[in-house]
């Protein structure tokens, strides 16, 4: 029972982290139609900038400055790269982000080297906030939750309560009409791209100390973020939130419970082969849930797309 409560908490942290990435990506994707493969690379940039800044002036300034730098970098990429490629169609745009992801990773390697970076939580948050049945809850994770929830509330307010939010909402579904009404859609694109990448950068600064700062960190999260926005549905902030939480919990619960496939197979009436080492199905009999946990989201995505191509909360098809 305690384990369930704790797993809920851990999954929440993971899910909210995913949300920080997917919220920006879903806006970019649904407005511009760009499958931005470099989104997680901006997350990585955030972590490395955060690390560098925190070395000299501390974690808290880094938390503010690094995302701003990443956001500006993102806006520049949109202005001078993506916008140029936009007119050629979606595949060139996608290749552009592919190449960008490669270049950002190599840039990071070039500047910071390829080894693990000792990016640590600030001392003020480096303690166990409370214990529950012997399980420690790091204060830093609670902090992560507050930041993510804060972002969600701010984004929701902007999107639903402000004028610019209404323009963005309209541009999500009817970009041509918005353009015809005299709004500067390219500027909106640049702004959304900048804010989206800044959010990814913020997620990077926050996740860097918790999940590690290393060159593979972008690749690790890259495709899973796509899963969240596809499952959640395009352009839906709520969809992105719920899908992120869903996937966070799915992965955490799958890692927490050592469900064995041998038990399922036995329950289904199969008998375990006596000479298991020679059996073609030996891998199935020894499989446990944590082994396949990280790939479950892809299974969910394929399933959702096959049944409901617009995603759980999407208003239009991909």
């Amino acid at each position: 029972m305690e384990l369930i409560a704790i797993t809920l908490f851990d999954g929440l942290v993971m899910g909210l982290l995913l949300f920080m990435l997917s919220s920006g990506l879903t806006l970019i994707f649904s407005m511009m139609g760009v499958l931005n493969f470099a989104h997680a690379s901006f997350y990585m940039l955030g972590a490395y900038f955060g690390f560098q800044i925190s070395q000299s002036i501390g974690f808290w300034p880094a938390l503010v400055i690094a995302p701003i730098i990443v956001g500006i970098a993102g806006a520049l990429v949109e202005r001078y790269g993506l916008r140029r490629v936009h007119k050629y169609g979606h595949v060139p745009e996608l290749i552009f982000t592919f190449g960008l992801a490669l270049v950002i990773e190599e840039f990071v390697n070039f500047v910071w080297g390829r080894d693990q970076k000792p990016f640590q939580e600030p001392d003020s948050l480096h303690f166990a906030l409370f214990h529950l049945h012997g399980y420690a809850f790091p204060a830093y994770k609670v902090f992560m939750i507050f930041v993510a929830v804060g972002i969600f509330l701010v984004l929701l307010t902007i999107l639903t309560r402000t004028r610019i939010g209404l323009v963005i909402q309209a541009a999500l579904s009817h970009p041509e009409t918005v353009q015809n009404l005299g709004h500067n859609v390219p500027l909106v694109f640049m702004g959304v791209f900048g804010v989206g990448t800044a959010l990814a950068g913020l997620a990077g600064v926050i996740a860097g100390p918790a999940l590690g700062t290393f060159p593979g960190m972008a690749f690790l999260l890259g495709s899973i973020v796509f899963v969240t926005i596809v499952v959640g549905g395009l352009g839906s902030l709520w969809g992105a939130l719920i899908a992120s939480l869903l996937i966070g919990w799915l992965q955490t619960f799958a890692a927490s419970y050592n469900l064995r496939f041998a038990d399922i197979l036995t329950a289904l009436g199969f008998t375990r082969p006596l000479r298991i080492a020679d059996s073609v199905f030996r891998d199935l009999w020894t499989l446990t849930l944590p082994q396949i946990g990280p790939i479950l989201p892809y299974f969910v995505m394929v399933l959702v797309l096959a049944i409901r191509p617009q995603g759980l909360f999407g208003k239009r098809e991909l």
């Binding site: 384990l3 851990d10 942290v13 993971m14 999940l211 593979g216 690790l220 927490s256 944590p290 946990g293």
Partner: peptide
């Protein structure tokens, strides 16, 4: 065993 290079957060294992 956990998948190699795919686990984002090791907290569940630690728990």
């Amino acid at each position: 065993l956990h998948p190699i290079g795919k686990v984002k957060d090791f907290t569940p294992y630690a728990r």
